[in-house]
Amino acid sequence: MPRLELCDVSKYYGRIKALEKVNLTVEDGEYLAVIGPSGCGKSTMLKVIAGIVEPTRGDVRVDGRSIVGLPPEDRGVGFIFQNLALFPHMTGLENSMYGLLTRETATDEALNMVRKLRMEFGFRARLSRLPGELSMGEQQEVAILRAVASGAKIMLLDEPLSSIDAKVAVEVRRKLREVVKSKGLTALHVTHNQEEAMSVADRIAVMRKGRILQVGKPEELYYKPRSPFVMAFVGDASFLTGTCRGGRAVVRGGYDLGPCDMPEGELIVIGVRPESIVFGRGIPGKVRLRSYLGSLIRYEVELENGDIVTAVSEEEQGENVKVWFEKYKVFKYPREGLTEALSPG
């Protein structure tokens, strides 16, 4: 069963480094999501695996064997694209059977397989209709059926939900994961939407400027980000700059936030999640923006020292507040500056 490996894969377009020494392993049966801002190289990576683009350097292996140089159809990968790319003149059923028929499966056998899969996944798409007559959710189901029915054990998904209405997408996310898990497929799902990645994937790789910054379970990336960029990309976060003095993190205005495991005098960035901020004690500030989120209220607070932080609370807060950071992450101040380190690239 398929284990997919990228070994030192680079792809250059002239002087542009679309991929730079990418190493990534997707274990057999694993659902891995790749997230990053547009232009970070994540789609190029999928194309390299699918055989649409050849890497400049490096190797792509399935179960230890190199697939570089093989034509796309011999790689054993199924592809679901952003625009779904269904054949508009074929019914849902014909679309779903396409991969099977090109492999010379008997028509009635192909028919049975597609019907069985449709039942198994609990899909409700009306397969006798043309794609143009189906809702976006149904078209998505057809695209999934086509990719799975083709028999491929590796599924590559390129922004598969970005053209669907957000309400429908939430439901399709769940279906995608269910299908991949129930069929024991190995899936690599590329998206710019970190919420989507969190809801479908076992592990997530964060990319920026052609490189992989960090790979881990959703919890690991959320609680143990190794850089301010990863921290900001996988959830709401505020950043303050400060200095490490006597083993303490000290920010503008002289506030001592707590322990800091950095060399004396080191310039640092303190990252804090909104839910780690408590109200009622600590640094005085003013509420600048209040947003209602259902069971929580999100507050943007301008601290006395000029920094702006985002906090959440179940309770109504007045305009003048005090906030304290119960937990925070300390990073070395990035050489390129904080704004640049947080920019999409």
Binding site: E195, M198, S199, P218, E219, Y222, V234, G235, D236, R273, P274, E275, L296, V312
Partner: peptide, 9 residues
């Protein structure tokens, strides 16, 4: 149970 960051689903 799905961990989504600040919220879980």
């Amino acid at each position: 149970v799905r961990f989504l960051g600040r919220y879980s689903r």
